[in-house]
Amino acid sequence: MKHSEPGGSTNAIEVEDLRKTYRGGVEALRGLSFEVRSGEIFALLGPNGAGKSTTVRILTTLASATGGSARVAGLDVASDAREVRRRIGYIAQGSGGDPLITGRENLQLQGQIFRLPPKRLRQRIDELLALFQLEDAAARMVETYSGGMRRRLDVAMGLIHQPEVLFLDEPTTGLDPKSRSVMWKEVERLAREGLTILLTTHYLEEADHLAQRLAIIDHGSVVVAGSPDELKGGLRGDLVSIELRDRDRTDEARATIEAVDGVSRVLRTGVELYAQVDQGTSAVPAVVGALEKAGLEVAQISLSRPSLDDVYLTATGQVFQQGGASASSDDL
């Protein structure tokens, strides 16, 4: 694993071979490794149950790892937990604000815990309330807030002590599109101010839009990591998606397509087949021809440049094959 860059830029988070086995034997993390550079937005992308939240819980000292090591802001999360907690902001998946007190009171308590001096705390609260457009709601019980307002308060609470590293666990899950774009703008602005942000998401679009780098994780380990462009570039050529009229023969078609010249790989999700090809324009007629020759009628065929969706698809598809599970498994 690569630690700091030769140029001297440091890593805000370093995770090495992290393992977590819950009592009862469930392996949530199976040797997870990645690093987050100072000042970047890094996304952990993966399906539900992939191990994203477990990773964040270990990095924020809420859970302990069963193996491996993790450092946040240069400090070991296990042996230096108390100091780590001083330097991080954590915004959990659910709201962590107390619904039965006001927004301002929530911020006040959070600031008191971090021992902000009273005068400084008052300024900071006003600053954050203005920043997150919560001034009018400050004196109202959080119970009465909308989902988007609650989320903004959560982020404000996580920022009260000006942390070095911010953890955002599924920041936009359950938000309407408008609140989501507001949240994205906030996250981008925070990153411009030099804050390191680790966010988890199961929205590809979110990772693509926000993250400078990301890691796709599945079944508790990193499948692939890099910048969105690097990852897309890593997929050679184009992607052809095919749907058959006779869906029962999809597996048969898969074998047929795999034999076509210029096709490097074929994956199946449900009734669709995805062929990774060197040259889209020449591959499409070749694929259609081969299928017709085998007596398989094509219902739909399309050609696309690789998107992050495709990275995700090929990345997690690979895992299924390596894990020995059927490659034509539907549960992608």
Binding site: T60, T61, L62, R82, R85, R86, I88, Y90, A92, Q93, G94, S95, G96, G97, D98, P99, Q110, I113, F114, M157
Partner: peptide, 16 residues
Amino acid sequence: RDIEGGVLDRLLATPV
């Protein structure tokens, strides 16, 4: 209620 609402986790991630 604090456990279910995530308040306890939020507190535990601070040096409280």
